[in-house]
Design a protein around this nucleic acid. Structure first.
Length: 423
RNA sequence: GGAGACUUGUCCGAGUGGUUGAAGGAGCACGCCUGGAAAGUGUGUAUACGGGAAACUGUAUCGAGGGUUCGAAUCCCUCAGUCUCCGCCA
């Protein structure tokens, strides 16, 4: 969430940026500042009264020690009066604070100055395109047909065991999946990321910390008995490693990578969007996350984009990188680059990674800070990106690398997969 | 799942109702000492939210939340976690 003091000092700027995100309730900014004023006033009043109670209590202690019981009784009376004033103040303060937080978390992060105007995905800016689209003599098969032909994935079996959106990978399909995970993790750790294997369920505090709660609970599976959420991405457990902590400047940057299955309810999706591997309720993903000093986060963002780009290139897939426009960005992000790979048979682009700088938006929610060189405690910046989401990569590999001789396996995967082709 | 013990600052650890935000030690930072280092020695060393130009200062925080009391790290309740024993188990 945004910081009240920042809004106070940069109100015009904040409103301008919120407009880029097409935020519909700019009035909230004034409301927040007013609530914060109210909060301060109440707290000052509360603190003063509490201070009187505290001093009187100490005096009572001294008087008791001296055996002056009557005087102590008089003071007790006075304390009782102050305390009766304290109770309503306390309630008002709690109510105001809650309202302030509730309002504050409705404000999305401000888009960075680099973010283009625009309302919908069509207005995203293509910043780079790479790789080569394959040419076919006969129309290429979509990945769901290829999956069946080579016995790699059974979608119907998943329906039987669980429900739609839970495919069963098998044989070479399962192995290719495992190879991809292994390769991605190796690629990331070689670049200095520390590997984690986090819990796949998180508590409410963690879901709140990265911004899934309170708004997106409909997107997550929830285990009612234990009040745990199944993670929609490894970003949630991994970023929360540093919730409520103060790092030393020399600990930064923190670079982490993690594989995890991701669970998403995806209510309301239908049609060609969800065909095959395009959109699933459970899928695998390898994530990269960095916690950095504020001054360095944009440098880090470029580094992460380049890192993911080289990874996609190594898979020999046609791809493009988009800079998302204000209207298409996520709630918590200040800037987002999406990676898409071309699906040769479906003739459409599939999103396989989203690299974002959250600046201090998540850090503020999670209270993740560091002591800078001057010894001052301030919020860190957090960034994350997929490297990469598996199903659509798998779909793209199948569709783009299909041939009369079978599915050709990209060179970098061959040692992991143990073969150069699926026949 | 059952029974018991426990949860204090960066760490170890004292503290069972009254100037305790918290003894003592370690660590760390800075200074002195030293040719340099170690040892020694002195000082400092939490976070959040207020007030103040600043020095400084108010409030809260001893696992979390509630309660008793004029006053709680200390007493009571609920929850979470850690450890030990038993049960179950990949």
């Amino acid at each position: 969430m945004l910081q009240v003091n920042f809004l106070r000092q940069n109100k015009e700027e904040a409103l301008k940026r919120l407009a880029v995100k097409h935020f519909k309730q700019p009035g909230l900014v004034d409301e927040i500042i007013a609530l914060d004023d109210e909060r301060k006033k109440l707290q000052a009043e509360f603190d003063n009264t509490q201070a009187k109670v505290n001093t009187a209590s100490k005096d009572i202690g001294k008087l008791m020690a001296q055996g002056k019981k009557e005087e102590a009784e008089v003071l007790k009376q006075a304390v009782a009066e102050h305390k009766s004033a304290l109770e309503p103040l306390k309630q008002q303060m709690a109510a105001t604070e809650k309202k302030l937080t509730d309002t504050l978390i409705q404000l999305p992060n401000l888009p960075s100055a680099l973010v283009p105007e625009g309302k919908s995905p069509e207005e995203n800016e293509v910043i780079r395109e790479g790789g080569i689209r394959p040419q076919f003599d006969t129309p290429p098969l979509p990945h769901w047909d290829l999956a069946k032909k080579y016995n790699l994935i059974d979608f119907e079996l998943g329906n039987k065991i669980t429900g739609s959106g839970f495919p069963v990978y098998m044989h070479k399909g399962a192995k290719l999946q495992r190879s991809l995970i292994q390769y991605f993790l190796d690629y990331n750790t070689e670049a200095g990321y520390t590997e984690y294997l986090p819990p796949f369920m998180v508590n409410e505090d963690s879901a709140y910390g990265t911004g899934q709660l309170p708004d997106k609970e409909g997107q997550m599976y929830f285990v009612t008995e234990d009040k745990y959420y199944l993670i929609p991405t490894a970003e949630v457990p991994v970023t929360n490693i540093y919730r409520d902590s103060i790092l030393r400047a020399e600990d930064l940057p923190v670079k982490m990578t993690a594989y995890s299955p991701c669970f998403r309810r995806e209510a309301g999706s239908y049609g060609k969007d969800v065909r095959g591997l395009n959109r699933l309720h459970q899928f695998e993903k390898v994530e990269i996350i960095q916690v950095v000093e504020p001054e360095k986060s944009y440098e880090t963002l470029d580094e992460m984009v380049n890192h993911v780009e080289r990874l996609v290139q190594s898979l020999e897939l046609p791809y493009r990188i988009l800079k998302l426009c204000g209207g298409d960005m996520g709630f918590a992000s200040a800037i987002t680059y999406d990676f898409e790979v071309y699906s040769a048979a479906q003739e459409r682009w599939l999103e396989v990674s989203s690299v974002s700088n959250f600046e201090n938006f998540q850090a503020n929610r999670m209270r993740c800070r560091y002591k800078d060189a001057a010894g001052k405690t301030q919020l860190v910046h957090t960034l994350n990106g997929s490297s990469l989401a598996l199903p659509r990569i798998l779909a793209a590999i199948l569709e783009n690398h299909q041939s009369a001789d079978g599915i050709k396996i990209p060179k970098v995967l061959q040692s992991y997969f143990g073969s150069h082709v699926i026949e």
